[in-house]
Design a protein around this nucleic acid. Structure first.
Lengths: 240, 240
DNA sequence: CGCGTGATTGAGGTCGGTCAAACACTGTGG
DNA sequence: CCACAGTGTTTGACCGACCTCAATCACGCG
C-alpha cells in the first residue's frame, strides 16, 4: 500500500538565528495575523532551518520541544493508524504554524513535501515569550482558532462529500489560499491528496481526468493546475 | 432524509447572572482548564440560559455576538450542505466552550440535544476581559488547542476508519470523557451519531447490534450503554 | 388502544476501493 | 543519442462496504 517513508529527521543545515529582517513575513490574512509592519516576537527568537524534499521534520509521539512556522515550501501533517492507513491533517504553506498542540508529545507527524524553510521556536522560549508578552497569546489564539475552523470544514468534507465534491473543494481551498491567479501549485502527490481527502490515489486520478474532460481544470506543466471555471467548481463543491 | 428541525432560538428562560457560586465547575482536564479552586473570570460576566430539548442555540451564518460555555446538558454543533447533508462537528458537555471562532458570524449551528444550561458571554465583554486579564487568552488558547486535537482525531476517523471502527472509537471517546464507570449516556439519536461519524442511521444501528452480539457492549435502560470489553473496543478502534 | 417517532432488520444497488496493467516521465549509464 | 530502470499516474475490470429504500419492530403518549 503506502510507503510513507521519509529520510532522516535532521535538517539539512541550520542557519543561525535571529535574522529578523531576512525572513519573509506571512501574508495578512485572519489566519496569519503577523502583518508585515507588525512586530513579530517569534521571529526574534526563531532558528531558521531548511529541510529537503520528503524529509521528516518531527514524528507523532516525539517529545514536542518546539513549535514551527513555515517560511517557504510545503509541509504535510499526518496521523497514521497502526496498520498504515494515513490521514493528512493539512498542508502547510508560508506563514502557517505547526506544533501548537500544548501536549508534551506531537500528536501528528510533519514532513517536507518540497524543500522547505521553517522557523523553529523551542517550547521553553515560547512559554517565556508568552509570559513577557501577553498579547502573543491572543495572536496564537487567533491562529489556532482559524485552524480549528479549517478543521471543521475538513470534517464536513470527509464525512459528507462525494469524491468529486472533495476534489473540487480541495482545489478551491488551495486557490483561495494562493490568492489571485487561476493557476495553483500542486507539489504534493496524488497519494498525498488522496490521504487528505479520505480517498485512494486511483479515485483522485479519476477525479482529475473527469474535471479535465469537463473543462473545469487544465493541467499545466510543473504540476500546476489552472481552474478554468471556478464557479462550476464551487457548484460542484456544494459550497464551502 | 433528515428533518433537522429545531424549535425557536429563544432560550426558555434567562436567569440573572452573575451567580458564581451556584454553577457547577468544569472538571479538571487539560481541555477544561478552569479548576474548581481557580478564579473563573468568565463566570463573573456570564448570563445563565436554559434551553429545551431540540432547541436551537444559534445557527450558522448568524452574527456571532456571544460565546457560550456548557454548564449542563448536551449540545450538538453541526454544519449543513445546501442539499441538507449534515456533519455534526461535535457533541458538547459540561465545561465545553462554543462559538470561540473569531469570525463575525457563526460557522456552524448549535442545538440542545437534552435540556441544557449554558453560560452566555457577549463577545464585547469577552474582548474587554481579554484586555484586562491577559492570562485568559492563554487559557482559551489551551482550550482551543485541545479542541483542535480532537478535530484532528475526528479527521482521521472520518477519512480512514471503517464503520465499526468509527463506532468503537466514538464509544471509547465518550467513555473517556465520562471518566470512571463503564456505562455512558447516549442522549443523542442514531441519526446524530451517524451524522457525526459520516455514516447513515442504518449503518450505525447495524454496528450497535454487531457490538451487542459480540458481547462488547450492552444496552441499558435510558439510552445508556455499558462497555463490556473496553480493550476489545480499543483494538477495534485501531487505537486513538 | 391507536398513533407517531425512532430503531432495527432486510434486500438490493452503487460509489469508491482493490487489483492489475499500461502509460508517462525522469534520470542514469552505455 | 538511445536503452533502461524506477517511480508515479492513469485507466480498466471487478468487488465489497456502505447507502438506499422499505418493511417491521419497540416504545411512549394522548
Amino acid at each position: 500500500m503506502h510507503a510513507h517513508t521519509a529520510i532522516a529527521a535532521q535538517p539539512t543545515r541550520v542557519l543561525p538565528g535571529p535574522q529578523a529582517t531576512a525572513m519573509p513575513m506571512p501574508r495578512m490574512t485572519p489566519s496569519r495575523p503577523f502583518a508585515a509592519n507588525d512586530a513579530d516576537p517569534l521571529a526574534a527568537i526563531a532558528q531558521l532551518r531548511v529541510f529537503d524534499r520528503e524529509q521528516a521534520i518531527f514524528a507523532e509521539g516525539e517529545t514536542a520541544d518546539a513549535v514551527f512556522r513555515v517560511v517557504d515550501g510545503m509541509i504535510r501533517l499526518y496521523k497514521l493508524l497502526p496498520d498504515g492507513r494515513r490521514q493528512i491533517i493539512g498542508f502547510l504553506q508560508a506563514g502557517d504554524m505547526v506544533g501548537l498542540a500544548f501536549a508534551d508529545r506531537y500528536l501528528y507527524s510533519a514532513e517536507a513535501i518540497t524543500a522547505s524553510t521553517v522557523q523553529r521556536v523551542p517550547r521553553s522560549q515560547l512559554d517565556a515569550l508568552l509570559d513577557s508578552q501577553p498579547s502573543l497569546a491572543r495572536r496564537l489564539l487567533s491562529v489556532t482558532t482559524s485552524e480549528l475552523v479549517a478543521a471543521q470544514d475538513q470534517m464536513l468534507l470527509l464525512g459528507r462529500k462525494s469524491a468529486l465534491e472533495k476534489l473540487a473543494s480541495f482545489l478551491l481551498a488551495l486557490s483561495r489560499r494562493a490568492g489571485a491567479g487561476r493557476a495553483i501549485a500542486l507539489p504534493m502527490s496524488r497519494c498525498d491528496i488522496a490521504d487528505h481527502l479520505g480517498l485512494t490515489t486511483e479515485t483522485v486520478s479519476r477525479g482529475f481526468t473527469k474535471l479535465k474532460t469537463s473543462r473545469l481544470i487544465r493541467i499545466l506543466d510543473g504540476g500546476r493546475v489552472e481552474l478554468l471555471d471556478a464557479g462550476a467548481l464551487a457548484e460542484l463543491a456544494d459550497c464551502t
